[in-house]
Design a protein around this nucleic acid. Sequence first.
DNA 1: CGATTTACATATTTTGTATTTTGTAATATG
DNA 2: CATATTACAAAATACAAAATATGTAAATCG
Lengths: 216, 216
Amino acid sequence: MTSQSISTRPPRTGEAIRILDEAERQILTLPTGKLRVVDVAAALEMSHANVYRFFKNRDDLLDGLVDRWLKDGEARALAAIEMHSAFGDQLKHVLLSLHVQTRAKIASAPGVIDIYLRALNKRTEAVERHRTFLIGICADILARGINDGEFAIKTGQIAPALILIESATRKFTHPLLISESLSEDTPAEAERVLSFFVEALRSAPQLFSASERQVT
Amino acid sequence: MTSQSISTRPPRTGEAIRILDEAERQILTLPTGKLRVVDVAAALEMSHANVYRFFKNRDDLLDGLVDRWLKDGEARALAAIEMHSAFGDQLKHVLLSLHVQTRAKIASAPGVIDIYLRALNKRTEAVERHRTFLIGICADILARGINDGEFAIKTGQIAPALILIESATRKFTHPLLISESLSEDTPAEAERVLSFFVEALRSAPQLFSASERQVT
DNA sequence: CGATTTACATATTTTGTATTTTGTAATATG
DNA sequence: CATATTACAAAATACAAAATATGTAAATCG
């Protein structure tokens, strides 16, 4: 079993999903992330006040959108993970899959990045949850890979290894950097970085024992 | 000898430097990067038109500031490089020094980040030059480390190694990511990432031969 | 005549106001 | 009585006018 995300809030139901759907539909056509509650309500032929029965305010609606994007990405990334028997390949798959999906989402409409960045700057609950989820999954894969003998690092090295990998893959996880590098082949680049770390986990465990130093 | 930066433009002289100095002084007190040419001129007791004899336009002045910041960083990073005899330590020193300096600059005033990002988005000549410089220096250190026997990779692996390191250290070089993580101990984090790569260059050269793969 | 300033047209920013949107509470509907 | 709508105050946004800044060319200074 994989470490599951703890939904801090029950998933949206019926009407709330219709609202999210319409909001997302409008984002795809809008030139920026300036979604209007009135427009969403109008498109659904309901009064805008009714939207507030399902979302505390506009930000809550946007947060809901991001939450759904992140959860969707997580689900897809996990869904295909079984294609890979090696744990190193699973690790690569999860991180690369999330990169590719986020990239595609951001590329699909100019407004998407605004909404992502809003959530990021606000340190939304959803964003925090996603980070926890991701680290949890990776920790899990590392632990199992160690147990299996595929990874040569020791259990005590999991935490430092995760920090290292998280730092080094920031270019592929941060929405703004993704949007800045849409013209590059970042999936290929990410693949190389991840392959590097996976190979290191397998054959160069000593690299994961950090030493510190002082510099000006 | 180290590969030197080719100044595409002669360095600013006399009056231009006074203008840059005053502009920088004002940035430090301004709440954003919205520097006004008239204010700089007024502080120097000259007409604003006179500024245009030294800078083509306002953007050119801002670009000049960034150029100076970058060159200054490069010079400082190189100046202390001789403290380290090992090439791996030199590599770490250069990248870490630039990170620490940029971080300090960004932390010194809220307006600084605006000016950095403007230059980055415009893909200023100075920014391009800096990138070329940095890659050149690193390539140089790698080549010399290989020659010396300290690094175990082959000459043909320099290019892929550089790409890898550049991607993986983006968190420590991109102004926005730096400004977003001012509350974290990113110098320590950078140190760990760099130590990892240096140690890999020394003892795990096979990691730098990339293989590709396909993922959804 | 070279260096600098004034004068000026154009562009940008700011200000104040009208309009729209948000969010809530009171009201209606089935 | 649960669900939705209308009505309304507060906040945000859009817009037009005024003020200010930018960038250039003609005028002045030494």
